[in-house]
Design a protein around this nucleic acid. Sequence first.
RNA 1: GGUCCUGUGGCCGAGUGGCUAGGCAGAGCUCUGCAAAAGCUUCUACAGCGGUUCGAAUCCGCUCGGGACCUCCA
Length: 497
Amino acid sequence: MSQLKIFNTLTREKEIFTPLLAGHVGMYVCGPTVSGESHLGHARPYITFDVLYRYLLHLGYKVRYVRNITDAGHFEEEGREAEDKIAKKAVLEQLEPMELVHKYTSLFHWAMQQFNTLQPSIEPTATGHIVEQIGMIEQLITAGYAYVVNGSVYFDVKKYAASHDYGKLSGRVMEDLFEGTRELEGQEEKRDRADFALWKQAAPEHIMRWKSPWGIGYPGWHIECSAMATKYLGARFDIHGGGMDLQFPHHESEIAQSTICNHESPAKYWMHNNMITINGRKMGKSYNNVIKLTELFSGSHPILEKAYSPMTVRFFILQTQYRSTLDFSNEALQAAERGWKRLWEAYAWLQQEVLQGGAEAKDKILDEKVNKLVDELEDFINDDLNTAKVLANLFELVPIINGIKDKHIAADALRAGTIDKMKKRLKVFVEDILGLMGENAKENKYLEGVMELVMELRKDARRQKDFATSDQIRNKLAALGIQLKDEKDGGMSYTLE
RNA sequence: GGUCCUGUGGCCGAGUGGCUAGGCAGAGCUCUGCAAAAGCUUCUACAGCGGUUCGAAUCCGCUCGGGACCUCCA
């Protein structure tokens, strides 16, 4: 039996996962900034870490999964006039910051539910932890690693770097950070260009503002994650995850702050998912190529040829190992859609069917193959969550399952034990770990009943060779997006578009 | 400019130095009242040039191409 190995950004190696506290796992994942709608790019980390969370639970760990909601603004552009992202947009949209934040938080939750992600154990908000953030900043000042200028507080990176390895996580070279080609405008408050804000004084027009020992202001970019992770997971915890783009400066700075306050490096394993690209280009606000999740599900973005269901997207994301970039295209999504449908139909049939396997395998070679394919699933997921390989094996099982269904393969070609194992393991992997689910499952019982009736009528028509009627039924349903399929034994099934 | 990643068949994507990844699409066949679905078969690649090696998609070097981070970002 293999052990779970995960790629640790800190060491750039795959390491065997061993929790700090036996049986428990503390996991922190950087959540969304809810100043706008979630987009396709957001889907990747939350689905990736959902699979990790599910897998850890499956392994029997008691997991505390913390994923924050960033609802306090950060700087739009460091050095310029402090512009709170949320506050700025709120003015434009004539909304209260909290109203805006609430709207996008709800939308985010809705999208995550569509993706069938499990809820984190705790989902703390930045605005709900101002006190903790101020407390941490005070600690940093007391320790001598932060300084106050005009009501703002900055972290002294140079001082930290003298005794710590700032840049370790992101592979940054200190000299490059300090030797700025040129001072950016409005940075005169900082002692060094590498320093970062812990607290910013709020300009009068700033809507989001809190009282602090340094005056009215709002928290800096990185402090919320340090404060909340410390509060809920302790000084040192197991896993910290997020997108690769957060490695620097966000996570690097988080490590620095937490290390000074807690006297140890916060996370044992740092995990970073790669980006989703569109036509080879990273999706991002600055590139103007953002596909929002609502647009993706409804097909309303100009890039999209059609709507793609949440499960199609989830499947699409899982078809790639999380550390590789994933390129989006209509062609790739449509391929995923078909593949996903085929996989699920074979899987669902297997689950609901009672098969009589043999006491001995009639086809020993096939039996061995099935066992191998099933056994390997665990090795693949253990190998830094290689969901791509897990899915490849599942696909290799599909023709075998369909072969049994179509009676090309006799059920007793396989041992009863093999069939049982395949059935159970597939359920664990497909549903529990990969978090995939049938999209027809949510249809209501009335439709189910009506379809039964319609299919009976069509079967009658076919028996009487009344093909005009049978074709009419099939064609009209097809126009509604319901596809009928005649089966070998005279049975009939349907799938919804 | 600095740091780093990457270049696989029509498309997407796994690949631990030696053995078929897988998916989608295409072609042929089987099944079928016709379809659809499914099954079987098939097409089949490792950017280029050198090097290491008995043997490289996999290691090294160079060239060319793509990307990420250094600034908000999943």
